[in-house]
Design a binder for these strands. Structure first.
Length: 279
DNA sequence: CCCCAGGCGGTTG
DNA sequence: CAACCGCCTGGG
């Protein structure tokens, strides 16, 4: 039997359903990087993957070789068309849907998401990525898949065991203390992230905000990207700008219910793109 | 060199 | 309550 598809690349979905650039560059994740051919590499829950476009398909090759795992991660079992229909009433949101189509809300590992968005505060994206890469390379587990070496995200327990000199090596600055308080809360069981997934949005948010260094914005990012609370609507400076300058004054994200999080990503992507094109 | 970045916690009016 | 300020660090 002759292998038709070489190298174990497998079709994940169509490029229409998942736009890799938009999804990876819209600020929800920090560990996917493209090579100069546009092939992205990333690590999710200890599994390594390469992912690329070919013709009109998205192809993936991974260390666990489990297509359902990746479909779940890329939220490909959700029907976004239902959400889009709810978004057409508001003019700027309607534009954002067309502009941002192809973005998926990634179902990320909760502890990694918590740690990453603590690092993100008052920081720029290249530096956020650098700090997280250091954290993984210094304290994660080194693994190999074919010719690629990669690092897992260190557990809350292993981060909590670090002393201040060790944690200082990732150069997170004043956020290091916040990372430590999150690591303590999670590794001690004081906060059980899996349990937060089954709590309602408000209760889960309250628990997250008990962590020193987690405020409204970081909590909402963790709820949306790490705990599957799709009604979360994180308001950063860009979203605040859109609310002030682009969306109508009576627009209320709560009216979108479970679709608010997706709308937030579309708006975020759109206003950033508008700003990038302008400058 | 300066400016400030996808916030937070603490203090003040 | 809102407004402000300091915080580590390094990218631009």
């Amino acid at each position: 039997m002759i292998e038709i598809f070489n190298d174990n690349w497998e079709k994940l979905c169509s490029s229409y359903e998942l736009d890799l650039i938009k999804t990876f560059e819209c600020g929800q994740c920090f560990r996917w990087n493209a090579d100069n051919c546009g092939v992205y590499s990333g690590v999710v829950r200890g599994h390594f993957a390469k992912i690329k476009n070919e013709n009109c398909d998205v192809l993936i090759k991974s260390s666990n070789n489990d297509i359902e795992f990746w479909k779940n991660y890329f939220d490909l079992n959700s029907d976004y068309e239902l959400a889009h229909n709810q978004m057409r009433k508001e003019e700027y949101l309607k534009k954002s849907v067309e502009f941002g189509r192809g973005i998926r809300i990634l179902k990320q590992e909760a502890w990694e998401t918590l740690c990453s968005f603590i690092v993100s505060q008052c920081n720029n994206i290249p530096r956020i990525k650098k700090i997280i890469r250091s954290l993984c390379e210094l304290f994660g587990e080194k693994k190999q898949f074919e010719e690629d070496f990669y690092y897992t995200f260190p557990s809350a327990g292993s981060v909590f065991k670090l002393n201040s000199d060790e944690l200082g090596r990732i150069k997170a600055g004043y956020r290091a203390a916040y990372i430590m308080s999150a690591a303590e809360a999670v590794s001690s069981g004081n906060i059980n992230l899996d349990y937060l997934k089954i709590l309602n949005y408000n209760d889960a948010k309250k628990k997250l905000m008990d962590i020193n260094g987690v405020g409204e914005k970081v909590a909402n990012c963790v709820l949306l990207f790490g705990l599957n609370k799709t009604e979360a609507f994180p308001e950063d400076v860009w979203i605040k700008k859109a609310l002030k300058e682009k969306l109508s004054p009576d627009f209320d994200p709560k009216s979108l219910g479970e679709y608010a999080g997706l709308a937030q990503q579309y708006i975020f992507y759109t206003i950033r793109e508008e700003n990038r094109i302008k400058s």
